[in-house]
Amino acid sequence: MKNISIILAGFALAGTSLAQPVPDSPADEHELQIGLAGVNSQSIYLGGSSQSRVFPAIDYQYKRFYFQAGDLGFNLIDEKNWEVDFGLGVNLAGDTDRGDSPLLENLPKLSFPVNAFLSTQYKSSIGLFKLTYDHEINNKHNGHSASISYSAPIRQGQWLIMPQLSYEQHSEEVVNYFYGVNQADASTALPAYQTGSVNNWQLGILGLRAINDKWSFIGNIQNEFYGDEISNSPLVDDDQRLSVFVGLLYKVF
């Protein structure tokens, strides 16, 4: 498992997503990295507070199977420049805790929708391009999302620096699940709100440094910019969110 195939599973805990390269190549033997990570993420929800979480990190790969960044996947195609994967993951389009906002505590509780995904990655001389489509399969909202991202790996001494740009589209089912208000739950303070699909942008920079043969450090700063369909929701009081992630990984084998 190359260092570029990092573990960022904890973003699921904070409701934050990150475009990430798929495994560089199938592992002939079991490969495992474990560690400790933390994330701090602002909340865009009305009355919501920033959330800080510390959690264990796990990155596992065997042949064409892998568990990375909360995704359980299978590598269908692994060519020199192309990779195609499918698997299961968690939908990260919104915060299921709604920022622990006391103003929204009477709304129905949310849970993480599980998605089936298909992704394609192209490795070029100028960087990595990735296209992903996923569809919810556990009857939370029956929506779908799609994204296209670009990452530019830059080597600086012991560091691998990766500026990243992502464009996302979420269907109306996804948007209304996380940011809508049903008529039955509406009030004077929170009027009913249903909307259509939304387009979001993410801009970030990731840094990875191998400390030695066993230990490595990873950090990421990311800002997400939300479309009007989300920012106009009565549940929302901001149109962007900043997240910071740091982690320390140990290669077991």
Results as ranks from 00 to 15, higher is better:
residue 198 V to F: 01
residue 155 R to G: 03
residue 194 Q to N: 15
residue 183 Q to D: 11
residue 186 A to W: 03
residue 130 K to D: 06
residue 234 P to V: 12
residue 100 D to P: 14
residue 206 L to P: 00
residue 202 Q to R: 13
residue 135 H to W: 05
residue 113 P to T: 08
residue 142 N to T: 13
residue 145 S to E: 13
residue 102 P to E: 14
residue 226 Y to Q: 04
residue 117 F to A: 00
residue 224 E to R: 11
residue 155 R to P: 00
residue 149 S to D: 05
residue 169 Q to F: 09
residue 193 Y to Q: 09
residue 224 E to G: 00
residue 98 R to C: 00
residue 118 L to K: 00
residue 182 N to M: 08
residue 135 H to D: 06
residue 112 F to W: 12
residue 114 V to Y: 02
residue 191 P to M: 08
residue 205 I to K: 04
residue 139 N to R: 13
residue 124 S to M: 03
residue 123 K to R: 15
residue 200 N to D: 12
residue 215 W to K: 04
residue 238 D to K: 15
residue 226 Y to V: 08
residue 210 A to E: 15
residue 163 P to C: 05
residue 205 I to C: 10
residue 125 S to F: 11
residue 146 A to M: 13
residue 132 T to R: 10
residue 174 V to W: 08
residue 194 Q to H: 13
residue 115 N to T: 10
residue 173 E to Q: 14
residue 138 N to R: 11
residue 171 S to L: 05
residue 130 K to Q: 07
residue 104 L to S: 12
residue 197 S to T: 07
residue 235 L to F: 03
residue 108 P to D: 11
residue 181 V to H: 03
residue 142 N to A: 14
residue 146 A to V: 14
residue 154 I to T: 14
residue 139 N to I: 00
residue 213 D to L: 06
residue 212 N to C: 07
residue 155 R to K: 15
residue 120 T to A: 14
residue 229 E to F: 12
residue 228 D to V: 04
residue 145 S to M: 06
residue 98 R to S: 03
residue 206 L to H: 00
residue 197 S to G: 14
residue 124 S to D: 09
residue 98 R to N: 05
residue 149 S to I: 03
residue 119 S to I: 04
residue 219 G to Q: 08
residue 117 F to W: 04
residue 99 G to C: 10
residue 136 E to N: 02
residue 165 L to I: 11
residue 107 L to M: 04
residue 176 N to K: 05
residue 157 G to H: 08
residue 114 V to H: 06
residue 158 Q to T: 10
residue 228 D to N: 13
residue 200 N to F: 05
residue 171 S to K: 09
residue 129 F to E: 08
residue 139 N to M: 00
residue 96 T to F: 07
residue 153 P to C: 10
residue 100 D to C: 03
residue 165 L to Y: 09
residue 128 L to R: 04
residue 221 I to A: 15
residue 149 S to R: 02
residue 111 S to F: 01
residue 170 H to K: 01
residue 229 E to V: 13
residue 190 L to E: 02
residue 117 F to T: 02
residue 202 Q to Y: 00
residue 159 W to R: 11
residue 210 A to T: 11
residue 109 K to C: 10
residue 132 T to H: 01
residue 170 H to W: 12
residue 230 I to N: 05
residue 199 N to E: 15
